[in-house]
Design a protein around this nucleic acid. Structure first.
Length: 483
RNA sequence: GACCCCUUCGUCUAGUGGCCUAGGACAUGUCCCUUUCACGGACAAGACACGGGUUCGACUCCCGUAGGGGUCGCCA
């Protein structure tokens, strides 16, 4: 019981949850669940400049949306709290004092400007840009006097040993770093806030973490943390450094690659289960080889092995495919759960009609079978979101299209302002066929574009009855304008 | 620049010395289904970065080279 597996996700609240962060959280969560362990959420908000409560709320809600719940953390509480680093300052102070007493850390009064010039010089000389140790020699008395005098000091960790530190990484195996890689590094800022590497190590130990999954950008940081663990004589948790997620150009995924936050995908109508399924397979592979992995199965299979050590490019096309699979598998109730808030948000009053709602569930289901992302569905329902896709525009450029769309408008304008039936649609279609002398795709595709803005989708006789006459007319007219 | 990590189809990956004529998924192309398109089905095309070893035998092990990425902050 005491050897329970414990993992954590430790975001800093500076914005929406990034897909990379989401994957780290997901892997940690899966690993904990697989081993019947605990997953804790810790907030690394020691950067007062950038951390905001608003961002914290965004992170929490994104995590909830992804269905990653935590046993301990903000809101949930727990016996190793508090779970916001800004509320743990006393703990860090105590730890720092201990290091100072043991001469493993020291006060440093060096001015930033001085440090910078020294670093410049070192760089020019081709030497490693390490702290030169000026303040290391200060006596206790000198420190006390300068502190009395109101001078601000940071606390630096004293890197004293000349040796290699070895890390047995869950993903990469043994990795070793020479201690000469770093100089005496800051662990406590002059304002009393701990620095990442210090707070992280202290908290991971105090919160009894057994396994730590984090992004590869932290791999080099591990050296500093290893030193801290050693200084305290603490047992080191097992680390797993996940390779980075890249954009299409092979560069680290960033804003210029388009959507990078979970929230953006949420807004665009992606299902959380599709996103997590996609992320599960980005850098990890299922032993059963399955691509569509329900959460339960991933928990069963995710044991911390089979994690890929090479960087992966985020492929939105595959994500979209996966989303379409989940969309199609939604039950009627689930489908409504997704569509309803949207209808409310867009104020689509005509669809509050109960009869329509009942009749349309089945039809919508059919429509879903061809949709790739829920935005398509929303577009189908909302006149405000209606637009003509690129392929739709191509269709409208056909010579025969204009006649078809005009005839279509002519016919629907004569019907009462309500919904047509499938039979009525078939009648209209027959009339257009005879009057315009077109059939096959030259008949169906222009009508389709005039209804849903895109030449692909479910059967027209099912789609058209979903929309009221006024909507159909507006859309057709809009298409005429596009010709 | 120093240190660390990475390198199989366009993309995500399987592969742990012979099972590989390198497998799957997405994307692409062709065909079937469909009075259209999509969905579904079938098929096709498409990769072990390079050079040396080790070995009877290397995608798999070792060493180089090249390329990519990361870290060198009072950011995380």
């Amino acid at each position: 019981m005491s050897n329970k597996i414990r993992t954590r996700f430790a975001p800093s609240p500076t914005g929406y949850l990034h897909v990379g962060g989401a994957r780290t959280a997901l892997f940690s969560w899966l690993f904990a669940k697989h081993h019947n362990g605990e997953f804790v959420l810790r907030i690394e908000d020691t950067d007062q400049e950038r951390s905001t409560d608003e961002a914290l709320q965004m992170q929490l809600s994104d995590l909830k949306w992804l269905n990653l719940d935590w046993n301990e953390g903000p809101e949930a509480g727990g016996e190793y709290g508090p779970y916001r680093q800004s509320e743990r300052l006393g703990i860090y102070q105590e730890c720092v004092q201990k290091l100072i007493q043991e001469k493993k850390a020291f006060h440093c009064f060096c001015k930033n400007s001085d440090l910078e010039t020294k670093m410049e010089a070192l760089k020019k000389a081709g030497l490693p840009m390490h702290y030169d140790g000026t303040c290391r020699k200060l006596s206790q008395e000198e420190v006390a006097v300068r502190l009395e005098g109101g001078e601000k000091a940071v606390i630096r960790f004293h890197v004293s040993q000349e040796k290699d530190y070895v890390l047995d990484d869950l993903v990469r195996g043994e990795v070793s770093f020479p201690s000469s890689m770093v100089g005496d590094f800051v662990i406590l800022r002059s304002d009393g806030m701990p620095v990442y590497n210090f707070a992280c190590a202290v908290d991971d130990h105090l919160m009894k973490m057994t396994h730590v999954f984090r992004a590869e950008e932290h791999l080099s940081n591990s050296l500093r943390q290893l030193m801290i663990y050693e200084a305290f004589g603490w047992e080191v948790p097992r680390f797993g450094h996940l390779s980075l997620i890249m954009g299409e150009d092979g560069q680290k995924l960033s804003k210029r690659h388009g959507a990078t936050s979970c929230n953006e995908y949420k807004e665009r109508g992606y299902l959380p289960e599709a996103l997590t399924n996609y992320l599960t397979l980005l850098g990890w592979s299922s032993p059963s080889g399955s691509e569509i992995l329900e959460r339960e199965l991933s928990v069963k299979e995710f044991d911390g092995t089979r994690i890929n050590s090479s960087p992966a490019i985020f492929d939105e096309v595959k994500l979209t495919w996966m989303n379409s699979v989940y969309l199609r598998n939604l039950s009627d109730q689930e489908l409504w759960k997704r569509v309803e808030p949207f209808i409310a948000k867009e104020k689509i009053e005509i669809y509050d009609d109960l009869a329509w709602r009942e009749k349309s569930v089945g039809v919508l289901k059919t429509a879903m079978e061809t949709l790739h992302d829920a935005v398509d569905l929303y577009r189908l329902l909302s006149d405000n979101l209606f637009k003509v896709s690129e392929k739709g525009k191509e269709t409208l450029e056909w010579d025969s299209s204009q006649g078809v769309v005009e005839k279509w408008m002519d016919l629907i304008s004569k019907m009462p302002n309500t919904f047509m039936t499938s039979e009525e649609f078939e009648g209209f279609q027959e009339e257009i066929k005879n009057s315009c002398g077109v059939k096959g795709k030259f008949l169906f595709m222009p009508i389709r574009v005039a209804v849903i803005g895109h030449p692909q989708g479910a059967e027209m006789k099912q789609l058209a009855p979903l929309l009221k006459k006024s909507s159909l007319l507006d859309r057709a007219e809009y298409c005429l304008g596009e010709m």
